[in-house]
Amino acid sequence: MSHPVVERALREGRDALREWEAYELCAAYGIPHPRWELCNSEEEAAAASLRLGNPVVLKVSSPDVLHKSDVGGVLVGLRGEQEVREGFRRLREEVARRAPHARWEGVLVQPLVGGSAEVVVGGLRDPQFGPVVMVGSGGVLVEVLRDVAFRLAPLDRAEALRQIQETSCYRLLQGARGRPPADLEAVADVLVRVGQLLLAEARVRELDLNPVVAGPDGCWAVDARVLLDRSGYTS
């Protein structure tokens, strides 16, 4: 039995979760993420930003947009009601112009999470090995740098730490260029939990937590993408 958000997506004929659905799935497996509110108007967004704290991030929510920043669907570091309202309008116009056919489901408002290092965490069902967990560096440039390491799930925290040490994100997390060292154990814990998620959620095909922002006191998935396997699905 899949998690309810996965079930619903499959029932609705989708092969990807919405970002906030992905957060709900992550939360069920103990993977931390920043709080979020889905807002349908600039008033709602402004009110949400007061609750969530300054500064905030706005992201378009649409089942048709997989790469949000490619369509101008992400605004980062907005402070105060005025900036949030303006941001909301700008984001809606930009997305309408660059992705006119995308269904509009509102804007996700989240507090901006600061940290000392960013890593990429991923998971997938490999045709040969089954559930596999990935860690690496590079953000959206991960395909260019290919600085990644894989492990089969399940894995424990010690194994996850060795996995992290195989890529240069280890040095980033240790605090490169005078930054404070990040919470390595917390990142390792996310890898362990991604493994658990893949083992338990047979319908999850691929998963990106990109980036996971890590600071001295923890780490958070600040973007999440979950792709589903619909093969043979009947509700």
Binding site: V142, F150, R151, L152
Partner: peptide
């Protein structure tokens, strides 16, 4: 044919490499 970052960098060999080390 990957739509995720993870899928596009998970070459068969990279996964083998990780599995071997583990």
């Amino acid at each position: 044919a990957a739509r995720s970052h993870t899928g596009s960098v998970a070459s068969p060999d990279a996964v083998y490499e990780g599995a071997f080390r583990q």
